[in-house]
Design a protein around this nucleic acid. Sequence first.
DNA 1: ATGAAAGCGCTAACAA
DNA 2: TTGTTAGCGCTTTCAT
Lengths: 345, 345
Amino acid sequence: MAVTIQDVAKAASVSVATVSRVVNNIPLVSEDTRQRVLAAIEDLGYEPNEVARSLKVRKTNTIGIILDDITRPQYTTVSRGATDACWMYGYNVILANTDSDEEKEESYLKVLLQKQCDGILVINRKVNDNFAEKLALSGIPVVLGTISDKEKKFTRVSIDNVKAGYDATKYLYENGHTDVGYIMASRDYYTVCEERIIGFNKAAEEFGLNAKEEWCVECVTTKFADNDAVEGYDAMEQILSSKQLPTAIFAANDEIAIGAIKCIEAKGLKVPADISVIGFNDYWISEWFKPQITTVSYPMYDVGAVCARQLIKKISSGIKELNADDSMIIPHDIVIRQSVKNLNE
Amino acid sequence: MAVTIQDVAKAASVSVATVSRVVNNIPLVSEDTRQRVLAAIEDLGYEPNEVARSLKVRKTNTIGIILDDITRPQYTTVSRGATDACWMYGYNVILANTDSDEEKEESYLKVLLQKQCDGILVINRKVNDNFAEKLALSGIPVVLGTISDKEKKFTRVSIDNVKAGYDATKYLYENGHTDVGYIMASRDYYTVCEERIIGFNKAAEEFGLNAKEEWCVECVTTKFADNDAVEGYDAMEQILSSKQLPTAIFAANDEIAIGAIKCIEAKGLKVPADISVIGFNDYWISEWFKPQITTVSYPMYDVGAVCARQLIKKISSGIKELNADDSMIIPHDIVIRQSVKNLNE
DNA sequence: ATGAAAGCGCTAACAA
DNA sequence: TTGTTAGCGCTTTCAT
């Protein structure tokens, strides 16, 4: 049987109220009794029961993180940033992997709510209308990390994916590429990819790029694939089957880029000599891959940390209403490596 | 204000006990009242408060996972397996990243205990004596995933790292390699690497391999490195500076292998033509890397799932004593790809 | 400065 | 079959 506040009170010959006061550092205790209580605590090895405390104060200091799959490098780093920030502020995190399965999303959310989480962080690839409504109805603070909701109901922390897609494409243009295409993940699962392609299209139009329809392909995402490399490979194969070939491809993430590069090389072509590829996310392997992959990077760890901070801010301020005003954009960057050839030289 | 069991009782004109009975599916309720209660629950949108329940029944259905860094591919997959299994059995998981920092380990453990976790899963690279003692003292079930404790106090779920190291080395030998070396991560951080090298040494002795001291290097692990590739690179550089060169290197994990291969190529040598490299873990990129990396694989997801299952079994059986009898060994495998040359052909 | 006591929302004897 | 009630371990008013 664990030792309780009662035991400590008895041992120190004080009331439980006093013990509670010293445990919670409430000043109105004489130095004398404080020491006695501290001694008793030390003595008995007392540790406060957080669930009793939570019940009483109606606060658990726990937040739920709902995400697709912690195994994906993008999410794993964001989660790490979020978790670290949470612990820093005295919050624990309960992790829920949903694999974008609507049923899981709902049931996990329900459990998180029953556990009286103080707030919820969603790092899914997508939040559909149904889930968005459930989230809104939950009555606790919610922030979205890396994803967007079309109605801008929620606080969101992310990079500017449209601009990032635009920047990547612009970089291709600046390097002399005008025949360009893209490979994106299935828009059913990745809202952000969709945004990146909006940026691509914007740049294509602005710079008068020739982005033939057959060079622009959307992957058929296998829901539970470990990574997108296979899909990138297949998509590239499709692109390479067109009569005329683009000089550069914008891959919506680095795994897709890796698959695409493999495919290009399998057909006896070279990257970047024959076809250039630009990736997205700056996954660590991109630096070690051959060729080293030029990509768009952004501080995922920071995105996670900022998410958590915004969520905790909401929790402590006691504001329950949904509000997207405190959304934040985290800056991104192009990291130039070897997979894009400069056609101007 | 959230709706409570009281509200439901009132709405259905029954006692809270009856509501509790229908919520918990306790049969002794007439179909009639059950329906009335169910209707009231539906009506008010009642969700049971798990923290009140936990306080009463002294069980939280929550387990804590203590691990170094969820960001590491090995751990991330193990965690995923563990988390999935937990949810399947109705348990939530609180995640604690420690970066092998002893202070964090202790304070996170304390918090997990205060939160009244029903059990603890440790997937650290190492558990030192001090932490092991704290764990043992916690009084709740503990299982270790992928790591070993020398005194075999804890239940452990893992592959047989010694045998795996032996098998990898034997594979090198079978392919005609007798001049071999290894690169291992710092033994200060990775207990498993140490075990793998024990296997290497065993094989080296058994097959009479020539494993020169200067070909066997232990990385100087930078505590918070994203990955071990840099260390693998540096270690290989050191090996390549020896007068005579080995024909094959056993890398203690795939990231190290990637770094080593990069280094070999940077010196103008080829893998596997000049030097063979065998990795460990079968990280997905190994299949996409050039050359594709021959490696030792094991089902990390399953290790995690089995960990969780063993832990939950302990929890439900109510056995608090430490006991390593239910430890489990998960089989491993050599996956043959292109980074090891067959010298016999 | 300290203590008594009510009560957070729930479960589980025990009674009826 | 249903209700009453005593806690689970803690915080927090309100007295003293």
